[in-house]
């Protein structure tokens, strides 16, 4: 195990976060604050409680999910896309590091950043609404697992992408809509029966539901299924990444 190598990649990626502190931390915090002001305080005060929770508090887990899913994906994809774009990937490819070590370095850094971001949003939310966390350990576990999983997805997108446009397309066109439709702002029980069934095809439903359970103790789908789904995504992404490094697809000619 080349620990020095993993550490080098990890610290390099985190340093990039500090260099771009405004985009990395400040802008997601700002946009989440806007959501809280609009949906939590302004509109939320006119919406009845959902499952006995005030609407402002109800949307916290979903809003955190919305941010960490898009941020994990775009940050991890950018992290590996940039060396491809500038040509500095030669150094990674010629270094004595295994696929696993490269992934741990890049994905670990992206996930770390998302976890920090999630915690910051959680703290920011406190300024707007009162909430409680019933299962803090589970909450943190879900947060970390989700950040890791979507950083893996982002890494995959970064490996695959040939342009900056392609880099943006999945977070913008797939992840954000799925998150909005995945019960971020509502409980899926509020949907007509047919749409409840359709919604179950949306993987984000399981993430939001599990995460919300850790806050308030009630969930749209069973906790075990939520956890299983996260682990399943993780497994799928890891398999594809391993295959890419093994075959050199998009990386080595």
């Amino acid at each position: 195990m080349n620990l020095h190598g993993v550490k080098a990649i990890y610290l390099f990626e985190l340093a990039r976060t500090w260099r771009t502190l405004m985009q990395s931390i400040a802008s997601p915090v700002l946009s989440t604050s806007l959501y809280f002001i609009v949906f939590g305080s302004a509109i939320g005060s006119r919406i009845v409680e959902i499952d006995g929770i005030s609407y402002g508090a109800f949307i916290i887990p979903g809003l955190i999910m919305l941010t960490i899913l898009t941020e994990s994906t775009s940050n991890a994809s950018f992290g590996i896309y940039m060396p491809k774009f500038t040509g500095t990937i030669y150094e990674i490819l010629s270094a004595p590091v295994s696929t696993l070590e490269i992934v741990v370095g890049y994905v670990g850094a992206a996930a770390t950043k998302s976890v920090i971001l999630g915690v910051i949003i959680l703290i920011t939310a406190r300024l707007f609404v009162d909430y409680s966390i019933e299962h803090p350990l589970w909450m943190f576990g879900f947060l970390v697992l989700t950040c890791l999983t979507f950083s893996l997805l982002g890494f995959l997108i970064g490996l695959w992408a040939n342009s900056f446009e392609q880099l943006q397309i999945i977070p913008m066109m797939v992840i954000a809509p799925l998150t909005f439709l995945g019960g971020t702002f509502y409980s899926i029980n509020m949907l007509p029966e047919l749409w409840q069934k359709v919604t179950l095809l949306n993987p984000v439903v399981y993430l939001v539901s599990g995460f919300r359970w850790s806050f308030y103790g009630n969930a749209d789908v069973h906790l075990g299924i939520s956890l299983g789904m996260i682990l399943l995504f993780m497994l799928i992404f890891i398999s594809i990444i391993t295959w890419i490094f093994k075959t050199g697809y998009k990386l080595k000619s």
Partner: peptide, 13 residues
């Protein structure tokens, strides 16, 4: 930073 990165990447203390 970049030379330090390279040294670490290649597994050197």
């Amino acid at each position: 930073a970049t030379v330090k990165f390279s040294r670490g990447l290649f597994g050197c203390a």
